[in-house]
């Protein structure tokens, strides 16, 4: 690789620090305190800038076997789960907690390769209902009902 991983990360961080600093300098001022709300953010932005620069010149740690690296074939699965989760969140308030959770639990487990369909269906039906009852009736915390009447 032409550039080390540390260098790439460092450049990304420097960009973040610069954006953060620009936003910090734009904070409106407030006249009645000796130290305004922008002091700490500006300080933090500068610190991040310095630390990122230090990282840039730090050698990468010896590349041992990276435990967290996802094998290429698993990447679509992770992305798939993320998509399922986004759909779940998007539909939660529209269709309601019970229905979306049932669908999410069943489909996501299926997608991950769970093949005991009866168990899966049972869990997907029972768990959302139990949670819903626990929250709505016992804890008096209303979860979205959506299109269901309860």
């Amino acid at each position: 690789m032409f550039r080390t991983k540390n260098k790439k990360v460092s450049i990304a961080l420097i960009l973040i620090a610069i954006v953060y600093l620009i936003l910090s300098f734009q904070l409106p001022s407030y006249a009645y305190v000796p130290v305004d709300s922008d002091l700490v953010p500006i300080g933090l932005g500068v610190i991040l800038l310095l630390l990122s620069a230090m990282l840039f010149f730090t050698k990468d740690q010896e590349q041992k076997e990276n435990e967290e690296h996802i094998p290429k074939k698993d990447l679509p699965i992770v992305l798939g789960v993320i998509c399922f989760t986004i759909l779940y969140i998007a539909l939660l308030e529209i269709i309601g907690f019970i229905m979306t959770t049932m669908l999410f639990l069943f489909l996501c487990s299926l997608f991950l390769g769970y093949r005991k369909h009866v168990v899966n269906a049972a869990v997907s039906i029972v768990i959302p209902i139990l949670i819903y009852l626990l929250f709505n009736d016992f804890l008096q915390v209303s979860l979205p009902t959506g299109i269901l009447p309860f």
Partner: peptide, 17 residues
């Protein structure tokens, strides 16, 4: 029984509101 009831009501009433 409760779950069954709920599933039935769910099936019957969706869209009626």
């Amino acid at each position: 029984a409760l779950i069954l009831l709920m599933v039935v009501t769910t099936a019957c009433s969706s869209g009626s509101k």
